Amino acid sequence: MNKKKVFKKAVHRNKIKRLFRSAYVLNKYILENKIHNNKIYYIVFIYQGSILPTFHVINFSLKKIFINLKFFVK
């Protein structure tokens, strides 16, 4: 599904990006405590909802994901 069909206004799409960015900044300490080496990791967040989320929903979800995230070492 094209993101422009769900959120037609760029204002709403940008708000979701800002909410994710601020929630990441607040919770990145959880990731920093789990990573003990100097490797580079790329993280991508994809929001697939059809309603505009609140900051509390995104913050709670990211925190839960970061706590349950596991890094496998080869």
Rank of each mutant, 00 (worst) to 15 (best):
N59D: 11
K39L: 12
I43M: 11
G49W: 06
K39Y: 01
L52Q: 07
F55N: 00
H36C: 10
L26A: 14
V25I: 15
E32T: 13
I58W: 05
P53F: 02
S50G: 03
Q48A: 10
Y47K: 05
N27I: 14
H56V: 12
N38L: 10
K39A: 05
Y42K: 09
F55L: 07
I51M: 06
F55P: 05
G49M: 01
V25H: 15
V25E: 15
N59G: 06
Y47S: 02
I30G: 08
I58P: 03
E32C: 12
P53G: 02
E32G: 04
Y42A: 08
L26E: 15
V44G: 02
H36G: 10
I58R: 12
H36A: 11
V57G: 06
K39V: 07
P53H: 00
N37A: 05
V25Y: 14
L52M: 03
L26H: 13
P53V: 03
I51T: 08
I40K: 04
I30F: 07
I30T: 13
K28P: 02
F55K: 08
F60D: 12
F45N: 00
T54Y: 00
N59R: 05
K28F: 15
I51R: 03
I51H: 06
I43G: 03
I46L: 12
V57D: 00
I43C: 06
G49V: 06
L52H: 04
H36F: 10
N33L: 05
I43W: 03
I46P: 00
T54F: 02
Y47L: 01
V44I: 00
I35G: 03
G49E: 00
F45H: 05
K28R: 15
H36Q: 13
I40Q: 05
L31E: 08
Y47Q: 02
Q48M: 12
G49T: 09
F60P: 00
N33C: 09
K28D: 13
K39W: 04
L31N: 05
N33F: 11
N27E: 12
T54E: 07
Y42Q: 08
F45T: 02
I43Y: 11
K34C: 06
T54L: 09
P53Q: 01
L31C: 09
Y29G: 15
N37S: 07
V44A: 00
I46K: 04
Y29V: 14
P53A: 02
I43P: 00
V57N: 01
Y42E: 09
I43S: 04
N33W: 04
N33Q: 12
Y41N: 04
I40F: 08
F45A: 07
E32W: 09
Y29K: 15
N27L: 14
N37G: 04
Y29L: 13
V57T: 05
F55H: 03
Q48N: 06
I30V: 15
I46C: 05
Y29F: 13
